[in-house]
Design a binder for these strands. Structure first.
Lengths: 388, 388
DNA sequence: CTGTTAGCGCTTTCAA
DNA sequence: TTGAAAGCGCTAACAG
């Protein structure tokens, strides 16, 4: 009596122009199966103490699938006080490599039963607005921050009001949990490759000076130089944004300076692309007159002129580990709050942008006097990639 | 006894140390302001009939901001039966240009009061899973589909159960609302540029043959050829995936074929990058021996060798219009269900990959004698782009 | 093993 | 102008 009345009213008022969901609810299934909705809830969710008759159990499942029941996320979130959703804030200028991070994070999130919601860091103009709409409005249980644009200020806000976030590839005053790649090692490997090809005057095309990620990469470069007993000349490290234009500008400066390097280790892929263009513009042949390495790998590296030698970092693991850490925090499991992804080690991918230094410095001939032997590495097999 | 055991177990597993939201609710504000929560709700939302005393009004605002109140999205969604969230499905292999679409969509969404949730089309393995978690679970009010990976099958499912979606840059059997760019015009413009430089044997590096986007681009190419009275030779249109590898392979085929083109109009940017590499690999100089144009523009085009002449499409508007259309549908406002973005017209960006045909074709091999006149266009000024 | 009963935090009639 | 009350669809004690 009362019930049917309420029911009708609900149906009436629900007649919005276009209904969003199929609209079949737990109650519908319950009615159809002749049980209470709490029973349906238990069964459909495999509730722990779910000792249910096989009969009702299957009846419920049948009805549910017959009606096409899907639980409503908002209702569930409200009742459970958790959304099972994780957010990831990415730089507004989507760079070449972030997609690997996202993919890794997404896979891990799915495995743990979360939905990953990616948000452009410029989504609401400023990052703090994004934080507001995601975190404060309770759209996500936790947040991955993979954007260098987020200022320390915003991050502080975040950390104060909301502990459930982890920073990717950036360390901020040790306060926020973070997972980083081994930037130092990666850059070390790239630089070493250059050194092993006989280069001694090696410059570093670094990122913005105020980002610790950038500093770690420079550190790896310096470490390699030191290990080889090489000096880092004055002005051999230039700081520029991690993009093509930055690389162009930085490389131009390096090549115009007093002691021109015979090799450049770039701290990013995009900058290396710009650097290649700059060298070309100054008629400096790569790799004959200038060797070049890039940090991070992407398919495009294969198709540049020349194909770029890069060091591929375990970006997918970065995303995955970040999700795992976040999950631990959300579930109260203890664990490290700062991890450096080591597992798939940085991998040097030799292509054609590094050559042996043409003439040895100071009559110190390198034993393997083979000149640059650009292996004619064929680009990889085409794989399907759809249009937008 | 038994019960408390279960209880304990539950509590244990539920031990979520860190609460997700500040947790201040409408009731808290109401209590603090000494009014009912319904009043707070009205005031804070500027309810239309909100005839409220200025006194209570400001008191409520004060308390709300003092307490740092932010409405909970789940509760609101549940009560209002809408999430004010829009989803956008993007290709798992994030291409160079999708970011502009996302940005346009995001801006429009924000203006209309939506949050845009971007989801990798491979989020849950298959697109239909993504649809499930977004649409069926009611996480979004509507969905933009900007992914060619989504098969027509999945799309059909979508359309059946859920009308509130619009397809970007793809038309599917006329059933789903869609907004597309003027692919035909864009390709026409690129091809015409080639024609105006004296080329007659012009090939088209097209996308997958079964995607209508791709067909429209080819149509533009053909239209330009026809308008100039030029013939499209047999095998002058090759279909490949819209990526570097596809472009590499397609270009290789074109350059190896019987009647080698003096110019290639690529139907995507990524493919053009691969094409440039292929030409290089075959020692075919661009633009001296081969002119090249690409469809869509991105900063990287400036830094290739040679810098690519492209046609920039109004991708931001594409995203924006799609959101507007979706919003119309959600609010029951009528309007066109198929729009072609015309407003910022496709724009040809001349760089250095197109040269005047060295000498009139006699169907003879071209000597590398006369060259074009590559303008030494400097790459654009560096702009800040942060690291991941 | 299943049903009853309270909410989760918010919106929204309907009264006052 | 404001308050009371009834849900939105779901989960989670608790009782039977």
């Amino acid at each position: 009596m009362h019930n049917s009345l309420v029911q009708d009213r609900a149906d009436l008022s629900r007649r919005k122009p276009s209904s969003l969901r199929p609209g079949v609810t737990l109650a519908d299934v319950a009615r159809a199966a002749g049980v209470d909705q709490s029973t349906v809830s238990r069964v459909l969710r495999n509730d722990h103490g779910a000792r249910t008759t096989e009969a009702t159990r299957s009846r419920i499942h049948d009805e549910a699938s017959r009606l096409g029941y899907v639980a409503n996320a908002a209702a569930r979130s409200l009742a459970m006080r958790r959304t099972s959703t994780l957010g990831i804030l990415i730089p507004s200028s989507l760079n070449l490599v972030i997609v690997d991070v996202i993919r890794g994070a997404q896979d891990a999130a799915r495995e743990l039963g979360y939905v990953l919601m990616v948000a452009d860091a410029s989504e609401l103009g400023r990052a703090s607005d994004a934080v507001r709409s995601l975190v404060l409005e309770g759209r996500v249980d936790g947040l991955l921050i993979a954007s260098g644009t987020i200022t320390d200020e915003v991050t502080d806000d975040l950390l104060d009001g909301f502990g459930n976030c982890v920073i990717l590839n950036r360390r901020i005053g040790g306060r926020a949990p973070s997972v980083i790649e081994d930037d130092d090692l990666g850059m070390f490997i790239a630089t070493r490759e250059l050194i092993e090809h006989g280069h001694e005057t090696i410059a570093c095309l670094a990122g913005p000076i105020d980002i610790d990620t950038s500093r770690r990469r420079v550190a790896g470069y310096r470490r390699a130089m030191k290990a080889a007993g090489l000096k880092v000349g004055k002005g051999s490290v230039v700081h520029r944004p991690f993009d093509e234009a930055g690389g162009f500008s930085g490389t131009t400066e390096l090549l115009s300076g007093p002691n021109r390097p015979s090799a450049i280790a770039s701290a990013s892929l995009a900058a290396a692309i710009g650097g290649l263009a700059a060298a070309r513009g100054m008629n400096v042949g790569v790799p004959d007159e200038l060797s070049f390495t890039a940090f991070h790998d992407a398919p495009i590296a294969n198709y540049l002129s020349p194909p770029l030698t890069t060091v591929a970092m375990p970006l997918g693991q970065l995303g995955r580990q970040a999700v795992l850490m976040l999950h631990r925090r959300l579930t109260g499991v203890s664990g490290p709050t700062h991890v450096t992804v080591q597992d798939p080690a940085p991998r040097l991918i030799r292509r054609e942008s590094v050559a042996r230094l043409a003439k040895p410095r100071l009559g110190e001939p390198k034993s393997a006097a083979v000149l640059g032997h650009p292996k004619l590495l064929r680009p990889t097999t085409p794989e399907a990639t759809p249009a937008i």
